[in-house]
């Protein structure tokens, strides 16, 4: 809607403010994500460290796998399988979006030539320039 015309100073100021807020939130959210993951990884590392001197890394692996019961293995398989199923379904959905999006776009453009877009890619992904 705003493309093709010069932006006023107020608009540019507003854009800068929004970008700044966006960047701050994005950095903070990324920090939270990785800090949490790092903390849990540290816990895993400390539990391995607690075994230091008692066992070798190879024997930890063998003991760990040796302690896995069938029920636990089934639960892990279910979890990994469910995530895999979700990922494959998502890819399928993306392909379907890519197939139908141009049809919808062309139909709407025929009725409303000044139709504005969400700027997503044809597969429904975030536009590369919009990713932080």
């Amino acid at each position: 809607m705003m493309q093709g015309r010069r932006r006023s100073k107020e608009e540019l100021d507003a854009q800068v403010r929004i970008r700044r807020i966006d960047a701050t939130a994005s950095v903070a959210n990324t920090l939270i994500r990785f800090a949490g993951l790092g903390f849990v990884a540290l816990c895993a590392w400390r539990s391995i460290a607690a075994l230091a001197g008692q066992k070798t890394l190879a024997s930890i692996g063998i003991t760990l796998l040796g302690k896995v019961y069938v029920s636990e293995a089934a639960a892990w398989l279910l979890a990994v399988g469910s995530v895999g199923y979700g990922v494959v379904q998502r890819q399928l959905r993306r392909r379907e979006i890519a197939r139908f999006a141009p049809l919808v776009r062309d139909r709407e453009r025929a009725i409303d030539p000044k139709r504005t877009s969400s700027q997503l890619t044809d597969r429904g992904d975030t536009k590369p320039g919009d990713q932080v």
Binding site: A44, S47, I60
Partner: peptide, 10 residues
């Protein structure tokens, strides 16, 4: 206990 902690962390 250490192995349980490791599994829990993973």
């Amino acid at each position: 206990v250490a192995l349980t902690a490791l599994w829990t962390s993973v």
